[in-house]
Design a protein around this nucleic acid. Structure first.
Lengths: 144, 144
DNA sequence: TATAGACCTTCCCATCATGGTAAGGTCAAG
DNA sequence: CTTGACCTTACCATGATGGGAAGGTCTATA
């Protein structure tokens, strides 16, 4: 099996398979005399694991941990669950941040007529609308 | 006012101010004989606009549009609102994607005992759990 | 006036995961 | 033997940001 077959079978592009090899996420496969990489079905199995984890949004470094746990047949499931829960917490934090942004922005957008007149509270808000952006005294050197 | 003052006043690092100049988001300021950049309070005003837009998650290219609209005193507010609504829609799409991922992943995590035993449905799921990942016939050359 | 040191300049590199391209070698079917 | 699908490595780009090096400028103070 050469790299294109492994790519088709795993859903990971040949380009990314080489990259994962380069960063040590997957072992370097055997080579033919020509230099062509040769993959076994166990390699494809590993690649599919990686692909599913990527689909779930795990960053590559988390996947590195998951692969180690997967290879260790005696791992406590606690550790796997910890990795998963951390990832969930990260995503939820990001979701919260984005929801806040959406809420704020929608507030401004709601206040905007959206017609042909130029007045626009969105721009007013971004412009700071009278906040003190006046000339400040020249920077003063910090001690010495 | 030199770049460090503008950075302090706007909340944008000196590094990023130079970058925004390089990509044409802000005009090149005057220079002293020494080459030092000289900023006016109007420049700081513009930088604060940019900073607020970044805080709201607008990508730089959207901010470029917003700055143009801001400078055009006759723009219809419709156009500003369109940019804002597009950004909201993008963020909401991203939030939806992430919520789906969290839902799926939490489903797996809930099924995992998270104790000292090795059995773990999360890894089982990632591993494909009996999906057909068997050796496939060698790639066949496409016609010719 | 000389020095210290805070500040500025440009240039290059790294991030993260991915895609693109180019130049060149390999392989199998016709 | 030719064709062309496939492989190899090496480099560049993304978006927005930070880090650092090497070197020049400015000003307060000894």
């Amino acid at each position: 099996m050469q790299i294109g077959d492994a790519a088709d079978a795993s859903g990971i592009s040949a380009k990314m398979i080489r990259y994962y090899e380069e960063i040590g996420l997957i072992p370097s496969p055997k080579r033919r005399d020509s230099g062509y990489r040769v993959y076994e079905s166990s390699d494809v199995h590993r690649l599919r694991f990686i692909q599913r984890a990527r689909e779930l949004g795990f960053p590559v470094e988390r996947i590195r941990e998951l692969l180690q746990l997967w290879n260790d047949r005696k791992r406590p499931s606690r550790e796997v669950k910890r990795v998963a829960l951390e990832h969930i917490a990260n995503m939820e934090a990001q979701i919260r941040r984005m929801r806040d942004l959406v809420g704020t922005l929608r507030h401004f957008a709601d206040a905007c007529e959206g017609d042909s007149r130029p007045h626009c509270p969105i721009l007013d808000e971004l412009a700071g609308d009278g906040a003190d952006v006046e000339a400040r005294p020249q920077r003063r050197r910090l001690r010495h």
